[in-house]
Computed example of a mutant assay.
Amino acid sequence: MFKALLLEESGKNTHASLQRLNETQLTTGDVLVKVDYSTLNYKDALAITGKGKIVRQWPMVPGIDYAGTVLASDHPDHRIGDEVILTGWGVGEQHWGGLAEKACAKGDWLIPLPAGMSPKRAMAIGTAGFTAMLSLMALEHAGIKPEQGPILVTGATGGVGSVAVRLLAKAGFEVHAATGRPQHADWLRELGASEIVDRADLDKEPAALESQHWAGAIDSVGGRTLARILSQTKMDGAVAACGLAGGVALNTTVMPFILRGVQLIGINSVYMAKEKRIEAWQRLQKSLPLDFEDQAQEFTLEQSIQVAQDMLAGKLKGRVVIQP
């Protein structure tokens, strides 16, 4: 038996409760993992509260990522005692996830924990940090360099945004952080932001082209904000789009693309290839401060339902880790 947060469908509502489950209920995959740490992402909060159409199979154990120790394995790449990370692959949506004491996954979904990285550090980074690193790597691949000008980060107090600010600053970029929470401005500057942008200034109907402000951007908002960023991106700039907190529609024109050569790059952290996952995690281990995990907020599995509600209410900042 093991403890898990279980989501069940109740009419049109979602009911979340802490339950004791049997290992025989874990049917996905060929590797059994003892979950040392999980985390609670924005997507998890939507699933737990039922405020987003995240869950595809019922009942569901949420938690789109986790780090832990292999308890049993029928996969050639993983042995008992190995420390592993899982992010993405529909876990917490289509397959039972990491907000539990145990989880089962396909071995091809797992990657080894980088040398020197603890499970808590891995989950302080989590899907959010992994997505932020993939976004930085995408901007680098697009040829964006620090001397070209500032990089805008939207949703800067969130999980992806706050790690992106750190990573960009570490890489030598001038970082402009967009947020609707001015009370966190000093914290964002501590992370490495040189300027704070009011998110309301970006959430306006854009012109086809506007004054050129950004060499690039990492955007976790989408919608009208992304459209405006594109209209303000400099010649030969690039925007990494990795979220949709502000909406899925993108009403823009071809003008930034054909007159300024702007690149819009989609970041798919869910089904990223294993080789690129390993590269990103190794860079994360080297790029983030040694005490990074100490700056995450830690909660228990029992607290996760309230934490999900607080996250959607905008009461939290940065990263959240969950210890089962």
Rank of each mutant, 00 (worst) to 15 (best):
M1E: 09
M1L: 00
L6G: 12
E8I: 06
K12A: 02
A16C: 06
S17W: 03
S17R: 13
Q19P: 02
Q19H: 11
Q19T: 11
Q19K: 10
T24W: 04
L26V: 03
D30S: 08
L32H: 09
V33S: 10
V33C: 10
Y37Q: 08
Y37E: 11
A45M: 02
L46K: 10
L46M: 14
T49I: 06
T49Y: 03
T49G: 05
R56S: 14
M60K: 15
G63R: 06
I64C: 10
D65Q: 11
D65N: 14
Y66C: 15
A67R: 13
A67S: 15
G68K: 06
V70F: 07
A72M: 10
D77P: 04
H78V: 06
E83P: 00
G88H: 07
W89H: 15
W89I: 00
Q94L: 14
C104W: 08
K120P: 08
A122N: 00
G126N: 05
A128I: 01
F130W: 04
T131W: 00
L134S: 07
L134Y: 09
M137C: 01
M137Y: 05
A142N: 11
I144G: 04
K145L: 08
K145M: 06
P150H: 09
P150L: 10
T154A: 10
G155W: 04
G155Q: 02
G159I: 06
G159D: 08
V160R: 05
S162M: 04
V165K: 02
K170Y: 03
K170P: 04
G172C: 12
V175P: 15
T179A: 13
T179S: 15
G180F: 02
R181Q: 15
W187D: 12
L188Y: 06
L188E: 10
R189S: 12
A193W: 02
E195H: 15
A208S: 08
Q212M: 12
Q212F: 03
A217L: 03
S220H: 11
G222S: 04
S231N: 01
D236S: 14
A238K: 06
G243P: 09
L244I: 11
T252W: 01
M255E: 01
G261Q: 02
V270P: 08
Y271L: 11
M272C: 11
K276M: 12
R277H: 05
E279S: 04
W281E: 07
Q282A: 08
L284V: 09
L284F: 10
L288N: 12
L290T: 09
D294C: 05
Q297A: 14
S304Q: 03
Q306H: 11
G314F: 04
L316R: 13
K317D: 03
R319W: 02
V320N: 07
V320H: 01
I322A: 01
